[in-house]
Amino acid sequence: MKKEILFSLNGIEVSVFVLGHERLIDVLRKHLSLTGTKEGCGQGECGACTVIVDGRAVNSCLYPALEISGKSVLTIEGLQGPEHRLSVLQQAFVDCGAIQCGYCTPGMILSVKALLDSNPKPTEEEIREALQGNLCRCTGYVQIITAVKQAARHLLELS
């Protein structure tokens, strides 16, 4: 039996009919064709599928679709700025060499976004803590930390 869920996706109200066993990642990738959210393990171990729900970074592969009703979801597609430009955070990842294969990147960026929204001046330790659930096999994380620091600095300058 499919059930209708209503929720806010990247600032727009949407309605989707889902099955009981479906997950938030299925709603995004399968039903809405938003393939920016990546599935890396399906078990909440790699963080590739991270999205933001009501301000908190969550693994969308563990999140039951039915529970998204009435909530607010931000995916990588919602981060892009006007006129097809990257957000400050995304640009920092590009500029600092924090992206290689890019498969972990959307999830990584959303984990950082959730961190910086609640803590605009994180210490390196806080950055590590926020990103400990996001695996990356390419970069060794060094330039990712540089990118987060640069983004935080730029965002503070702008605000």
Binding site: I76, V94, G97, I99
Partner: peptide, 10 residues
């Protein structure tokens, strides 16, 4: 890198 922006945008 030229593929950076698209990868950052998903």
């Amino acid at each position: 890198r030229p593929d950076g922006p698209d990868k950052a945008a998903g």
